[in-house]
């Protein structure tokens, strides 16, 4: 009986810790063990990065080429640029970029977080977006002095507004926790014409993400009884293998957010 009580007590403590994990990015990031862990992780990552240098170099070179192209911008060239660069230059929207490296990355949990090696000291703030050179990665949810935690798109609570590149039909992208290479796109009206292989990009309705970041391509879809499609997207990025990312912030974010909130209280 005594032992049953002790057992229940320990399970309760464990459960409390699990519930705390829903705010886990706080507890981990700010604990001493967390700090120690990330410095060990940083070193280990240094070694693993060495082995992926070739592919990372290639990727950065590709990006460099695109940026050079951008510098010599004329209208014809503009067409060739990857969508998000195009959006940012055409509309002249000011985004600030902070390059960052992945310290720790998980893709196997249901709630995946990515720890980055930039923190408050580098100007990172909560709700900043995290992207690779062309794809959306996630959103910053917590910041410490030297590190920040990004909630990956592979997180069952993640929610990204997206639309098709070809037309303006939009929906929201969510992850069902099953397959790290695929996500579901919901709330796409059945009047939309879509085809397998269509590209899905981020939508301007999001106040946090710039428009035009690649999310994935349509792999399959069905038309159920309801008014909305069931769409499966194949992600553009292999999130297991990301190393270099950018933390970006829309300069007028807070202002836009305020405007988007407008009138909500009246409802």
């Amino acid at each position: 009986m005594r032992f049953l009580l002790l057992f229940l007590l320990l399970e309760t403590v464990g459960f409390a810790l699990v519930v705390g994990q829903y705010r886990y990015h706080h507890s981990v990031l700010h604990s001493v063990a967390g700090d120690m862990f990330y410095s060990i992780s940083s070193t280990l990552n240094g070694w693993t990065r060495f082995f992926s240098l070739t592919s990372e170099n290639e990727r950065l070179m590709r990006e460099n080429a695109q940026l050079r192209e951008l510098m010599s911008v004329d209208d014809k060239h503009d067409e060739l640029l990857i969508p998000y660069v195009k959006t940012t230059t055409n509309s002249g929207v000011p985004y600030s970029y902070i390059p960052a490296r992945v310290v720790k990355n998980s893709t196997r949990m249901l709630k995946n977080y990515i720890v980055l090696n930039r923190g408050a000291k580098d100007g990172v703030k909560v709700d900043d977006a995290v992207v690779t050179d062309s794809s959306v990665v996630g959103m910053i949810v917590d910041v410490s002095q030297h590190f920040s935690v990004c909630r990956s798109i592979l997180h069952t609570d993640s929610y990204v507004s997206a639309r098709f590149m070809g037309n303006d039909y939009h929906g929201s992208v969510v992850w069902n926790g099953k397959d790290r290479e695929r996500v579901a796109m919901q709330d796409v009206s059945r009047v939309a014409s879509i085809a397998v292989g269509d590209t899905v990009i981020t939508d301007s309705r999001s106040s946090l993400l710039p428009e035009g970041l690649m999310v994935g391509t349509v792999e399959s879809f069905s038309v159920p009884e309801s008014d909305f499609y069931d769409i499966t997207l194949r992600l553009n990025e292999d999130y297991e293998a990301i190393h270099n990312v950018y933390i970006i912030r829309y300069a007028h974010r807070d202002e836009l957010k305020q405007m988007l909130e407008y009138g909500k209280e009246d409802r």
Partner: peptide
């Protein structure tokens, strides 16, 4: 070390 809250403890 695996930052899993108390899952393994339970």
């Amino acid at each position: 070390f695996l930052s899993t809250g108390g899952l393994n403890a339970m």
